[in-house]
């Protein structure tokens, strides 16, 4: 692994770059962070990344910001968290500042609105591709409980619009109950 300064520089540049392209909400930056730091740099393991995502979405605040903080902290401690958060905020801050000044012209530009509309379909495709990879991992684990949790969470979030914080809390409770039952059984043996 490179020295800390190089890690921070790479962290800053990649978070800045990803944040500038985070159209469509926090989950997009989370999937892009995964592609960058898990698949490309191999700095974080896939399972660890899922845990970091869970932390990012169970804490209050924007998922994109939280995601950058956990990844930054994991890679380089407090300095990493600060580097990642500054890099994450610069693009939206600069873009919105400009738009706030030129909003009327921006809003009525047909080309810009068409480009942004098309990008939604592209974002959807990126998420679909990542979900396919991660979902295949869960299915291949052949754990009935995991597959059931995945299906039930999807229905709760997508069909019943349950707030994700309740889904996270429910899974933590379920996991705690399963762990306790498992420990009891081990003790009896």
């Amino acid at each position: 692994m490179e020295n800390k300064r190089q890690v921070l520089a790479k962290l800053f540049l990649s978070t800045l770059y990803l944040s500038a392209f985070t159209f469509g909400g926090g989950y997009v930056i989370v999937t892009l962070l995964k592609k960058k730091f898990v698949d490309e740099y191999h700095w974080i393991e896939e399972n660890e990344m899922l845990d970091l995502v869970a932390i990012a979405q169970s804490a209050p605040g924007a998922i994109a910001v939280n995601g950058a903080i956990v990844v930054g902290y994991k890679l380089a401690g407090i300095a990493g968290a600060l580097t990642a958060i500054v890099a994450t905020i610069i693009p939206p801050f600069a873009i919105i500042s400009l738009i706030a000044v030129f909003y009327a012209a921006f809003r009525s530009n047909v080309i810009i609105s068409k480009i942004l509309e098309g990008m939604q379909a592209g974002v959807g495709a990126v998420i679909a591709s990542v979900v396919y990879e991660m979902g295949a991992g869960v299915v291949q684990s052949r754990s009935a409980a995991s597959i059931l949790i995945m299906a039930a969470s999807f229905i709760a979030a997508c069909v019943f619009q349950v707030n994700v914080i309740y889904i996270v809390l429910a899974c933590i409770l379920l996991g705690t109950a399963r762990t306790l039952i498992h420990i009891r059984r081990e003790e009896r043996k």
């Binding site: 909400g25 989950y27 899922l50 979405q57 949790i149 995945m150 999807f154």
Partner: peptide, 13 residues
């Protein structure tokens, strides 16, 4: 128990 749910929530988004 949490990891499969995270995948599901990304899918839902």
């Amino acid at each position: 128990s949490l990891r499969p749910a995270v995948v599901a929530m990304i899918a839902s988004a």
